[in-house]
Simulated assay, not measured.
Amino acid sequence: MKLLTNPIFLKMALLLFASAFAFVVAALIMRRLRRSMDEQDAIPAIAATPEQLPLHAYHAVIQQLKQQKHELAVLREEEHRRARSSENISAAVLSNLSCGVLFFGPNGLVRQANQSSKSILGIASPVGMDAETIFRQTSLTAAPNDSSQTLAASVNAVLRDGMLLPSVEAEHQTPSRETRFLEVMASRVLGADGSVLGVTCVINDRTEIANIRRQIELRGDLSAEMALALRTSLITISGYAQQLARNRDPELATQLAADIAAEAKHLDQTIGGFLAESKKAQAAGKYS
């Protein structure tokens, strides 16, 4: 009883009751607020679902476009890799060709030249040069149409008019003053869309063949001269022999025998000279 009448105990009991009541009231209020907030969140979510359908569709389209872009990038990279591989193969083939190849661009300047063309023309770097400069010391020796036209003009005509330049023979003088005989062909190169990419000029070195042809002609001339000299000597010897057969004079017979011997010696000298000239021609052919 004394405890119930104690004012401190009463204050503490009242404070405890007030605290418990406040806690219960706060819990109820918080529960009600949470329920209200959940209801408010649920209503917009249900209402927003139809509106989000176009957004999802746009997102799917964007993802598909990104995938297609990635696939295109992969295809382009593959095409570039194949193009680089093809260019490397083409460059290797051109560098190993025995004939010279010059590629003139649409502006008439050389864009590409293989090693054989540099060796044949005697020009270290023809890239960036035009046909007039490269074939300045070149003259046509056999042309199918117009023999007065220069080789440079023929190449420019192929680039300008698109006409095919068949095999023509030309005499070329290198910067080191070395004469070479060339066989040249040129044709225009078109792109996939029909545009003019340039002119390809193929050059073959025919110097050795020309030297052999010259030796054959020289030997033919020597053979003709030799045949004429042999015929003359044989006719002379035959005439002396016939006179000797009909003659009965010992002195005249001695003279005719001496003439026959002299003509035979001349014939031997002629044959020796012919053989010497033939050896000189062979030696010149080896060192030319």
Rank of each mutant, 00 (worst) to 15 (best):
L72R: 04
I46N: 14
A92M: 15
Q173F: 01
R177K: 13
I212C: 04
I271K: 14
T179V: 13
R219P: 00
N107E: 13
L252M: 14
K2C: 05
S288G: 00
T179D: 02
D205N: 14
Q255V: 07
A124L: 03
G105M: 09
F135Q: 02
L94E: 12
V189S: 06
D205Y: 08
T150W: 13
A27M: 09
R180S: 13
A241T: 08
P144D: 06
T138M: 01
I46E: 15
L165N: 11
D41W: 08
G162R: 10
K286L: 14
S176V: 02
T5H: 11
V110T: 07
T150F: 12
A26Q: 05
A170V: 04
L165F: 12
R76I: 04
A257I: 02
Q40M: 12
A57W: 00
S187Q: 11
T236R: 13
L102M: 05
S223G: 02
V196P: 07
Q255N: 03
A142R: 09
H59Y: 07
S278I: 10
S116W: 05
P7K: 03
L275R: 13
Q255R: 09
A83Y: 06
Q40Y: 06
I134A: 10
L16D: 10
L275Q: 15
A60Q: 08
T150A: 14
R219C: 04
L230E: 14
Q255Y: 04
I235L: 14
S117C: 13
L33S: 13
M129C: 09
I62E: 08
N88T: 12
S147R: 09
A45Y: 06
Q137M: 10
L94R: 03
D38A: 14
R76A: 11
E263Q: 11
D161M: 01
A241W: 00
M185A: 08
C99D: 14
F9S: 08
G285W: 02
R180L: 10
T150Y: 12
I134T: 03
L252N: 11
T174V: 06
L197I: 01
G272D: 14
L256N: 10
D130S: 15
P7D: 03
K286P: 04
Q173A: 02
Q52L: 15
A143I: 03
Y58P: 00
N145C: 05
R206F: 06
R84D: 15
Q40W: 08
E71N: 10
V127I: 11
G272K: 11
D205W: 10
A47Y: 07
R35S: 09
S238I: 00
K265G: 01
Q115S: 14
L10D: 01
S223E: 06
A18W: 03
D130F: 06
S117R: 04
P175S: 01
K286M: 08
A57H: 00
M226W: 04
L164H: 09
L151D: 03
A276H: 12
S167V: 04
F9C: 04
T254Q: 12
E79T: 08
A258K: 11
D268M: 12
L190C: 07
V202C: 04
A124G: 02
A227L: 08
D146F: 12
A143E: 07
E78T: 07
L218D: 11
V101N: 03
F181Y: 15
R82M: 13
A170R: 00
R219A: 08
